[in-house]
């Protein structure tokens, strides 16, 4: 989203340089962030243009969040920011400093019982290859919390932002329906 688009043609203003392998190399804009992820405070220094998705996967060793399209068209990168499901591929890491971020890794602690949505996905075989699955589960948890799991058709519509090429959709609907019942 951009307001008041004003693009002026001019050469890049890259004034800073660093030495890399003995060669003088221009540097990119870096930013140091303190992110609240899965209840933990995490420090990371990244380029300003790094998305939350790439920060998680490349810099914070949280690879449960998946990259499927990198353009907001598949939902594999779904995480929760301040309790709401969003796409981490279209979110800058810098944008969510000060917010609460939850990823699939934080849904149930290792060794603890599965979250009811995770358990329902396993029981109903709501995935095959598993790659879209963390996004589906994060989306499903939010879908139920939003109150959009009232009927099968409502679940279908409100889970349509998460593509699954293996074709687990009917089982995802079964899993969300059952988990919603359990969580109500």
């Amino acid at each position: 989203m951009f307001f008041g688009l004003l693009l002026v043609e001019r050469p890049a203003a890259l004034g800073t340089y660093c030495h890399q392998n003995g060669v003088k190399t221009p540097m990119t804009n870096q930013i140091s962030l303190n992110l609240d992820i899965n209840g933990k405070s995490r420090q990371v220094t990244v380029e300003a243009r790094v998305t939350l998705l790439d920060a998680l996967r490349e810099h914070l060793e949280l690879t449960g969040t998946k990259k499927g399209c990198d353009h907001g068209q598949c939902g594999a990168c779904t995480v929760h920011v301040d309790g709401e499901r969003v796409l981490s591929c279209l979110t800058l890491a810098a944008q969510v400093e000060g917010s609460t971020i939850n990823t699939i890794e934080g849904l149930s602690a290792p060794g603890d019982a599965l979250h009811p949505v995770q358990a329902a996905f396993l029981e109903h075989d709501a995935f095959q290859c598993g790659y879209c699955t963390p996004g589906q589960i994060m989306s499903a948890v939010a879908c139920i919390r939003e109150g959009h799991a009232g009927s099968d058709d409502e679940i279908r519509e409100y889970m349509s932002g998460n593509l699954c090429r293996c074709g687990a959709y009917p089982h995802i609907v079964d899993a969300v329906r059952e988990a919603a019942k359990e969580l109500s």
Partner: peptide, 21 residues
């Protein structure tokens, strides 16, 4: 039987190829 690789996939711990560093 439910998938035995399921728990790794639903918790985000399954390590797909591009997730190594």
């Amino acid at each position: 039987l439910s998938r035995i690789d399921g728990p790794a996939k639903i918790t985000g711990l399954a390590d797909y190829a591009l997730e190594h560093h």
